[in-house]
Amino acid sequence: MTATAPEARSTGPGTPPPGRRERKKQRTREALIDAAFRLFAEKGFDATTVEEIADAVDVSARTFFRYFASKEDVALTFQEEQQEAVLAALAERPAGEPVMTALRRTVVAIARAAERGDLGFDPDRFRCMMTLTADSPTLLAGSLEHAQKKQHLTTLAVAARMGVDPETDLRPHVAAATVVCVFRAAADAMRCGSMGFTSMAEAVDAAFALLEEGVNFPAGPASPESG
Rank of each mutant, 00 (worst) to 15 (best):
Arg116Phe: 00
Val107Lys: 04
Gln79Met: 14
Ile110Pro: 00
Pro94Ala: 07
Pro98His: 07
Ala75Trp: 11
Phe68Cys: 03
Val74Cys: 06
Gln82Asp: 11
Ala75Gln: 13
Glu92His: 05
Asp73Trp: 10
Val99His: 06
Arg105Gln: 07
Val107Gln: 07
Asp73Cys: 09
Ala114His: 07
Val108Gln: 02
Ala113Tyr: 00
Gln79Cys: 05
Ala69Asp: 14
Thr106Tyr: 01
Ala95Leu: 09
Gln82Thr: 14
Asp73Ser: 14
Leu103Ser: 05
Ala102Asn: 02
Ala91Leu: 09
Ala89Asn: 00
Gln82Lys: 12
Gln82Cys: 12
Ala85Gly: 05
Ala113Phe: 00
Ala109Trp: 02
Val108Gly: 01
Leu76Gln: 12
Glu80Ile: 03
Glu81Leu: 09
Gln79Phe: 08
Val107Asn: 06
Arg93Phe: 02
Ile110Phe: 00
Ala91Asp: 10
Leu76Met: 12
Arg105His: 07
Gly96Gln: 08
Ala109Val: 04
Leu90Ser: 01
Asp73Leu: 08
Glu81His: 12
Gly117Tyr: 13
Ala109Asn: 03
Glu97Trp: 02
Glu81Ile: 06
Arg116His: 04
Leu87Gln: 07
Ala89His: 00
Ala88Thr: 08
Arg93Asp: 00
Val86Gln: 08
Arg104Phe: 04
Glu97Cys: 05
Ile110Lys: 00
Glu81Tyr: 13
Ala85Gln: 12
Ser70Arg: 11
Leu103Lys: 11
Ala69Cys: 05
Ala88Glu: 04
Ala69Trp: 06
Ala109Gln: 10
Thr77Cys: 10
Pro94Val: 09
Ala102Gln: 03
Ala114Trp: 05
Val99Arg: 03
Pro94Thr: 09
Val99Ala: 11
Asp73Arg: 15
Gln79His: 11
Ala111Gly: 05
Ala88Arg: 11
Leu90Tyr: 07
Leu87Glu: 03
Phe78Asn: 14
Arg112Phe: 03
Glu92Ile: 04
Ala102Glu: 00
Arg116Gly: 01
Val108Thr: 06
Ala95Gln: 13
Met100Glu: 08
Thr101Asp: 08
Pro94Asp: 10
Gln79Ala: 15
Glu81Val: 11
Ala95Val: 15
Arg104His: 10
Leu103Cys: 06
Leu87Phe: 13
Gly117Trp: 15
Ala91Phe: 11
Val74Asp: 07
